[in-house]
Structure formats: structure tokens, C-alpha cells
Amino acid sequence: MKKADNHKNFKTPEGYFEGFTDRLLDRIATNESPEKGSVLPKSDGFGVPDNYFEELNAKIKAKLDQDETKVIKLNPRRNYLYYAAASIAVLVLLTIGIRISRTTEPTFESLAKSDIEDYFESSDFGFSTYEIAEVLPIDDLEVSDILENQFADEYIIDYLDENLENFEELNLLNDD
């Protein structure tokens, strides 16, 4: 009986086996792609101005430099002048302020909740919710800190009893 791998009468194109894996993987990827034969266009038609990417580095650097110059320390001599001017301004403002302060002054407590929510909604803090969640001391929070309406314990127990399959598995401690 002849050996199964005796194939001296057959030939393959040069480099056939070397590129076989890549060709096979490409074919699998194409076949698995959900958009094969799809009506979806391959490009989306967006363009950019000429040399935009080449000039981007310089634009960002200029913006950064602009930001940094805002926090450059003033030299000591000029500081004296600024301190003197600031002191006079503070005195003047205090004098005026004392007179005006007899009228109502906004405090944190006097802010409407909707204003605070609106501020959080519209302001860009530069943090994602994930980043805020990382620093929020969740361990110190109580449900009552978040909810305005308080739920009595028996309502919570009733709710869990009705909505959980194995209420007993919760192993609730009975303080009574």
C-alpha cells in the first residue's frame, strides 16, 4: 500500500503553504463579517482642510503656552504693587460690602436644588462619571442621603419579600 503523503506526481504553486494561513484567516474574516454584500458604504465622505494634521501640533502647543502664561508668577517687586492695590481694593470693597451686606446674601443653603442640578448638568468638570465614582466616599453614604422620601423598614421588607424568590437566603438579622 502506498503511503498517504506520497504526492510526487502533484505540485503546488511556489510559496503556496507559506501564505496559506494568512489567506485562510482573511477568508474567514470576510465570511464572518456581517456587512458582507452590505449596502453600507465603505467611506463616510468626511474631509479635512489641507495640512490640518501637519499644523495641529503647533496649534495645541500655542494653546498650552497660552494656558500656562496665565499662571506665571509675577516678579517680587511687582508683587508689592499688586498687594498694595489689592489691599486698598479689599478695604474699599469691605466698606461698601458692610453697607450692602445688610441686604440678603446668597448662601449655599439658599440655592434652589434645581439650580445646583442645572449647574452640574451644564458645567464641564473634566471628569467622567467613572472618575467621580472613584473618589465618592460610597461607604459613608446612606440611602437617606440620596432619596428625599424615606422608606419605612417594613415597606422595604415587604418589597423584598414580594420580589425575591428566596427571601430567606438574604439572612436578614432581626434586631428585635
Partner: peptide, 13 residues
């Protein structure tokens, strides 16, 4: 001016 899409590309958007 920086969108050169044809009808189908606009429809995709």
C-alpha cells in the same frame, strides 16, 4: 465644505 459624501453617504449619516 469638508463633507464630500455622495447621496448614499449622506443617507448613512
Amino acid at each position: 465644505v469638508y463633507f464630500n459624501g455622495d447621496e448614499i453617504e449622506l443617507k448613512l449619516q
